[in-house]
């Protein structure tokens, strides 16, 4: 049996990779994919705790996270497409109309 810490370390690594993507990439869609990566790593943590604690509540949390992730993907991509239609770019450093 694999120790719980291995799963936790794996999800910490995945989360950190997602943080790099959000902070360092220019393309809004890649930032978006990185957010999905971070959500996935948190889900992995919840499932690991649920399995090692013998309690299914953790899996319940994952279902609600999945719901929010699906809603976020739909609305976020709609925003990106509307943005592209108006500004003809999805690079987040060129979209600065709300900057004073």
């Amino acid at each position: 049996m694999i120790p719980l810490n291995y799963y936790l370390a794996l999800s910490a690594i995945l989360f950190s990779i997602g943080v790099v993507g959000v902070l360092a990439r220019r393309n809004a869609i890649i930032v978006f994919m990185s957010i999905e990566l971070m959500l996935n790593s948190v889900n992995l943590t919840l499932v690991a705790f649920s399995a090692y604690l013998g309690n299914a509540t953790g899996q319940m949390f994952v279902f609600f996270v999945l719901t929010v992730a699906a809603a976020e993907a739909a609305v976020g991509l709609a925003i990106i497409i509307a943005l592209f239609r108006n500004k003809m770019t999805v690079n987040i450093d060129e979209i600065n109309i709300m900057k004073w």
Partner: peptide, 29 residues
């Protein structure tokens, strides 16, 4: 981790839904 139903849901929602949306986003932008 013995979460079989969750694994199937992950495949259905993420691979079937969110990833296809992402690809549409890539193609459209």
């Amino acid at each position: 981790l013995n979460a079989d139903f969750l694994a199937i849901t992950q495949l259905l929602i993420y691979v079937g839904g969110i990833l296809v949306l992402m690809l549409f986003g890539v193609m459209l932008t």
